[in-house]
Write a protein that binds this DNA or RNA. Structure first.
Lengths: 122, 122
DNA sequence: CGGTATCCCCTGAGATACTG
DNA sequence: CAGTATCTCAGGGGATACCG
């Protein structure tokens, strides 16, 4: 039996895990916002339009837990907290950019397909 | 094209749309199952372990609507329905494989990060 | 065999109010 | 400023039963 032909089920689950994380509503937008440099909480909130405080907190925590971003507290009044991508986070952002390129290249095509499908299937 | 620019918000939304579609629970597993060739409904159901009939139906319909797969009915008794990737679907599967490679390469690292984070944050 | 139609549950996500 | 704590709700996803 050739194990190299079809990806193992375990790999599939791992990929799904990553994708469902990356594919949630906010993760990518946060990562993209951080690609060009560190940002603070409210700066990030402004950059990622439409996100609620709570969802930003949750998304940041998850990303930090996975080692994608680093959280730095500068003790001062008012407190300053900086978020920046780790090397792992940067590498993710590069991979995501590939997918983004694919999406950008095919979005229009997909929309046409949907339109045609909806027209043909009343 | 200026690669250094920040992606437009519209692009971001398009990418998120694609990713949340691709990142759902079943889409990738279905696409991966079809990479090596066409399959029929129940063959697909066996290949993608744990999926319910309804979710398989929904996933296939969405993929068909987006033009990722093609559905062919062979009129016979019992009826035979074949699903296969379109060129667009194949191109998606290639892009996803990139992400899969990234995931495979970093999964262990991520798990270590989570473990450490959970240890450090009681 | 290849699906629909229902019902139900759980989680993702938002709104709001409060805190160090 | 940078969060935490609650409440709430829509919809993604599953189980089951039925249909051509």
């Amino acid at each position: 039996m050739d194990v190299t032909a079809r990806p193992a089920a375990a790999d599939c689950r791992a990929v799904s895990e990553i994708l469902s994380r990356v594919g949630d509503k906010w993760t990518i937008q946060v990562v993209v916002a951080l690609r060009l440099g560190a940002l603070r909480f409210n700066g990030l909130k402004r950059q990622v339009g439409g996100i609620s405080q709570q969802m930003l907190t949750r998304t940041l925590k998850t990303l930090e837990r996975d080692g994608m971003i680093e959280r730095t507290v500068h003790p001062s009044t008012p407190p300053q907290v900086e978020y920046r991508l780790t090397p792992l986070g940067h590498s993710l952002s590069e991979t995501v950019r590939q997918l983004a390129d694919w999406a950008a290249a095919h979005t229009e095509n997909i929309w046409e397909n949907r339109l045609r499908y909806d027209t043909d299937h009343p």
